[in-house]
Design a protein around this nucleic acid. Structure first.
Lengths: 205, 205, 205, 205
DNA sequence: CATGAATGAGCCTTCATTCAT
DNA sequence: AATGAATGAAGGCTCATTCAT
């Protein structure tokens, strides 16, 4: 890649990062191109040099976030640790990443009105890929006896986990935590309870 | 209340209900007055007979949702049951209510840009009230040994619970569940794990 | 049609008429919604109450012009006169109509960039219908010996006629003619020469 | 002229040629600098090395077209032929030139909004010059008995001729003619009728 | 009470133009 | 001489809001 192209790619990345933050705060319709531009000390028009339109900019910002997230969890999964430790790390990283980047994972309510069919397919593919990493870990962990989850309920637990994690960005700053890592640590510990059976659930049904 | 006023109140309630559904789907900025009106077979202008402006309409719809939710959980708390049973019922009701009404609890990303300061205060007051019911139950339950939560972490658990519950509306329909109550039952069981210690967490740190 | 609807239809017609004039002067891209609106002492936004978008407004204005023109020529053709007299009247009317309405018949260079495929089909259908009236008259007249045109060249003559007539709006006002009817009369007489053989063409080729 | 200047002039000519084609197709407002540049595999910015602004580029392209056209007709007029033959050749050349270069003679609807006053004067002067060649030929030919046109109607006939000729580019390709020269030949023959009296017009008025 | 009609602010997007390199 | 990058002024369009009827 030439120097020019590298520079351009870097600028695009900057824009996407900034967009991610603002989108997390205001949502798709609440975010204007002006918002994104002025945050970067550019003019609205300049954005159109890098992205075809708002839709594409937002789409790429989501793809970036998802890709980074997938990479994050896959890296952890590849390591040699107990399932419970892997999960702990994955949860920590997920929350930590969202908080530090002030981003918001799949916060766009019903993306059908925003993205084109092609984009939608791609987005869902990535969301799926991300979720699958969790699912596999949960399945393996269950088989190994580390977690106590019947196979047919793994998706439920995974979704509860994701929901709770994604929501964290909504209330974290309000809590005015002194220390992010302590906070994340504590949150993680509780979330791990979701996968750990305690003999208590067995009597249900 | 005169007949006329009753009629008006009833119509307002209808509008708010409809608005809740649409807002849950499209968010504040994505929802137009036209959307709300046409859904009720009215014209845009007519809405302004019942509500001063969009802000007020949305505000009242949120207040309604919150009030109803508070009422719901308080009714449960007043009953004479084990803490764990109360919590189970509260969770079930929360999820069930959101799914059945296709509503969305505090889904508006960062309400600061939407509501007026006064409204904001009121909304937060109500959210607080709702949360407090959970907090108190968790505190009592902990004291009674039903839950295993240190006092300073009750808010964290409560927020995780709310996050996971609020998120359910985002993935429920995709799952294509046959049976709502079964689904909710299953979800609830897992969420209860959040408050139940298993001896496992003690060794952390 | 209710009074309301009649009023609305009338307003639409007014807008279309105005649009026709401005479009004839500035072309599609040179005409702004603001231009059209201010000419009618409205605001831009109001136009969108009557027409979905600029494309539709312009499309409908063209359809109106074409329909009116077709009606005009068909009425003349139905009468009982010599072909040459019919043609004379058709030419006169065409020019007169364009001049008086300051409209412009198919002035949009290459409409493919402007209209949607469906609209394009419709526009072409109407242009065709208009041209066919001329073609039929020319054919009949030729058969009857009034004109001297081989069948395979009727379309050429028709197109030359239309071209010369459509162009009239471009130079008429510059001439500062005192009297429109005299002017049209004179123009018509010359155009009729196009269909009249003089024995001179026979020796060609 | 230095080598450098020659090179520049050549490039300018290329640009103007390309611009003429695109302008003929899309009109002034419909043509972007980008359109012109990309057609020549340049970047937008480069055009500004050769032309001050879009206005100037378009102005010069028109001047070029007009000058070339004037030259064309003057060359023909200088020859020693019968007026009717001269006219035939002029018409042929006009049409042929427009078709082959995909250019469009004064197709810009009302140039007043496009050019500066100075440019406008110049453009009109050239149009005038072009028209005058026709006018003089028609006048001479009438005097010589070759055409049958009263002096005060020469301009009308000339304008009708120009209109019909300029319009040809609009319908030529649609006809899908096999052979341009045959087509032009045929068109020319009919146009010549415009100047040829047949005894028929005399009785008018 | 409700509607049709209109307004005006704001947003997305395009494009002529500029300028440092 | 040419390019990449940026600017800013429109222009198309939406939508909350108003108001006469």
């Amino acid at each position: 890649m030439s120097l020019r192209e590298k520079k351009k790619a870097k600028k695009k990345a900057e824009i996407l990062q900034s967009a991610l933050t603002i989108l997390a705060e205001k949502g798709y319709h609440g975010t204007t191109m002006e918002d994104i531009a002025s945050h970067l000390l550019m003019t609205k028009g300049a954005l159109y040099y890098y992205f075809k339109d708002k839709q594409e900019l937002v789409y790429e910002s989501q793809v970036k976030l998802l890709n980074k997230s997938i990479e994050n969890v896959q890296n952890i999964c590849k390591t040699d640790q107990l399932p419970i430790e892997k999960l702990r790390k994955m949860i920590k990283l997920h929350i930590d990443y969202l908080i530090r980047n002030k981003s918001s994972f799949e916060l766009m309510a019903k993306p059908h009105e925003i993205f084109s069919p092609d984009q939608l397919i791609q987005i869902f593919r990535l969301r799926e890929a991300y979720a699958r990493v969790y699912d596999e870990l949960l399945r393996e962990g269950s088989k190994a006896g580390a977690f106590s989850l019947p196979n047919n309920e793994i998706k439920i637990v995974r979704n509860l986990l994701l929901g709770a994690m994604n929501w964290v960005t909504q209330w974290h700053d309000a809590a005015g935590e002194k220390n992010i890592s302590e906070f994340v640590e504590s949150v993680t510990n509780y979330l791990l309870r979701l996968v750990q059976g305690c003999g208590l659930n067995d009597e249900d049904k």
